[in-house]
Design a protein around this nucleic acid. Structure first.
Length: 282
DNA sequence: TGTTATGTTGCCAT
DNA sequence: TATGGCAACATAAC
């Protein structure tokens, strides 16, 4: 669920609520593995007494520096949630970790499917962990020129290519389908066959979609909620995701949307607005 | 009651 | 290196 707009929504709220607070204690619940291979007691000893600095986001990763040489690196994967709650609030469903902070508030981590992780790393290791990521799609380095050069000679479908976090950081299944629809590019188009015009449309579409979704505090399709437990408002604005599998009409041309699987991911398209290029090799 | 789907990523085989 | 399949897990919907 959480893609760039959702993680950014979490970051903004955490920035307001936890920056400058000291960790006074840690409670592990049913899944201590949430901190990775690290022994929970080691984790506790490392973080208690430290002060949380302003949280940062890189792609779908959240990182929270701790004074002065450690960083919490967090990935929510499919169903991870960060919650800010008053101290002594009952554990929420699927809660795995609570960081108790001064000022009587808790930062809780809950995760139904247990795919997400909250790692405590030396600062340098944290930087290294994020170094593999491609450019931020909302920053200047993400241009159609970059996309064209990176996709050159790549035969993988453009959708798979864009989901590769080493290409661009932060797109997931929802926003990739939305961006390809808005750019009128079929998800199966070989990445290396993008024209310069298509690449330019795609970059503009990705930026527009991520910006507006972030303004709406993310997409709550089934389960995303921000650290206050509130959903985002973007679901009502999706053009293909969640509509194609119900056979609803395209909002642009009225053709019935189509749904198929691509690399194990549900994929939503308008077969009229998004057409495959005629292949040069037959 | 079984089957299939779910927003992510890393590992493994080819 | 590029690509594709699948596992990690819990639940909901059909």
């Amino acid at each position: 669920m959480p893609e760039l707009p959702e993680v950014e929504t979490v970051r903004r709220i955490l920035s307001k609520e936890i920056t400058g607070k000291q960790i006074t204690g840690v409670t592990f619940r049913d899944f201590p593995g949430v901190v990775g291979d690290m022994d929970p007691e080691v984790f506790r000893a490392m973080v208690v007494g430290r002060t949380l600095e302003a949280p940062l986001r890189r792609g779908k990763y959240l990182s929270i520096p701790l004074d002065d040489d450690l960083t919490l690196v967090i990935h929510l994967r499919m169903t991870g949630r960060m919650l800010v709650l008053p101290a002594n609030t009952e554990p929420v469903r699927f809660e795995h970790l609570a960081l108790h902070l001064d000022g009587d508030i808790d930062l809780r981590y809950a995760d139904q499917r247990k795919f997400g992780r909250l790692l405590c790393l030396e600062h340098e290791a944290a930087v290294a962990a994020l170094a593999k990521l491609g450019p931020e799609p909302l920053e200047r380095a993400f241009t159609s020129r970059y996309l064209i050069s990176k996709s050159s000679r790549r035969t993988a479908p453009i959708k798979n290519f864009l989901l590769d976090q080493r290409v661009v950081a932060g797109l997931g299944n929802i926003y990739v389908d939305e961006a390809l629809f808005q750019a009128r590019i079929h998800p199966l188009t070989p990445a290396g066959e993008l024209s310069t015009e298509e690449a330019a449309r795609l970059v503009r579409a990705i930026r527009r979609i991520l910006r507006s979704a972030t303004e709406r505090q993310g997409t709550t399709f089934s389960s995303f909620e921000n650290p206050y437990g509130e959903g985002g408002a973007n679901a009502d604005f999706l053009r293909v995701y969640g509509r194609a599998n119900r056979g609803l009409p395209c909002t642009r041309c009225g053709t019935s949307l189509e749904w198929f699987k691509l690399g194990g991911r549900g994929t939503s398209v308008c077969p009229n607005c998004q057409q495959l290029p005629i292949s040069g090799t037959g």
